[in-house]
Design a protein around this nucleic acid. Structure first.
Lengths: 190, 190
DNA sequence: CTTAATATGGAACAACGTTCCGTTTGTCAA
DNA sequence: TTGACAAACGGAACGTTGTTCCATATTAAG
């Protein structure tokens, strides 16, 4: 790949991420091309369909969220890393309000997103859960899939999505993860 | 209101309902005007914004669903009426997959939809529940809101809705609720 | 430096939502 | 019944979108 092409792709992805976060995923492609300092033709050379650009941005943000897991694992205690990552995941979901309807739209550009979602996010979360479980800080009978789906459900927009309800419910979920730990420590039968 | 105007509004709503159910809510307004046998100008005279037409169709279908409750109540035994209406509600929800994202879109045309939803559907269901409860055919500790929300949640599309994951996650939430209680019981400072 | 492959930019096209206005049509008083 | 006026109608036209196309400019290799 030619150097200028790579540079333009990077600029487009970075600009699109900003614009999508600000104006929403319905922002015109022309605006993105302009702000990135490239022509429309260049944008369409690298992303033949508008949805390809959206999917590429989503994919990149999934990667960033997954990478955050390993970073948090190095800097915090197992349960803290897990709890903080869950909050990070909430932020990821909150800024991607159009994601659910996009995936559900049937556009082939989003076809591979769920698979990538599972491939990157599930192992990342599984690693955090394993660490916390090995350290005896959380219960051992929950899977990464359970937590992933539950948090996603909690982040779904509802009629009153104000006052950080999602964050509080996810924090509650995290506390629920360590409940049985305390139970068994309190209970000599275990 | 003039007779031809009323006729055209009815034709537009009926056609729009069909087209939305077939092509989806993203169908072009021109197609709806053509199939209804009216000009674009006529459509826009009665529905200044595209979203006004969509909202009007949704509103009418909410009314039809609510009206079905009284009809069913007259023709069937209390519990049968309730059960059949719940199925009717499932159908209503299944065909309106774009409803959630439409309401969430922030378009002022959809602003009044949730209120209308509550105003028509909740009393309709409450009446059915009351009848069935008075007849001793169902338990008495459930509200119309409970059933409405529960059915709506059950209708949400999910990648894998198996293995009673919802129940387990709710139990986890409950554990989270008890966590701080145990914490304080463990801590003598309280 | 030459050259061929590649990338670029923006004019141009199609389809959409929406506006505008000359024309037609229903309604009601005379 | 008839006239006249307010109301409704139809569709051409406008602005904005996603997308295509190709003459031009840029890069990398010999």
């Amino acid at each position: 790949m030619r150097a200028d092409a790579q540079r333009n792709v990077d600029a487009l992805l970075a600009t699109a991420k900003q614009v999508f976060a600000t104006t929403g995923v319905d922002a015109p492609v022309r605006e993105i091309a302009d702000k990135a300092g490239v022509g429309i033709g260049t944008l369409y050379r690298h992303f033949p369909k508008r949805s390809d650009l959206v999917a590429a941005v989503f994919r990149r943000e999934i990667d960033e969220c997954a990478d955050a897991a390993t970073a948090l694992a190095k800097e915090h205690a197992p349960f803290d890393a897990l709890a903080q990552w869950m909050q990070r995941f909430v932020v990821f979901f909150a800024t991607k309000r159009g994601l659910a309807s996009a995936v559900q739209s049937g556009d082939p550009a989003f076809k591979a997103l769920p698979a990538h979602f599972d491939k990157r996010l599930r192992p990342a979360l599984a690693s955090l859960i394993d660490d916390a479980a090995s350290a005896g800080e959380i219960r051992t009978d929950v899977t990464a899939n359970d937590v992933l789906n539950a948090v996603a459900q909690l982040c779904l927009p509802s009629r009153d999505n104000n006052s950080g309800q999602a964050e509080r419910m996810v924090a509650l979920l995290a506390d629920g993860l360590r409940y049985s730990t305390i139970q068994s420590r309190k209970n000599p039968a275990d």
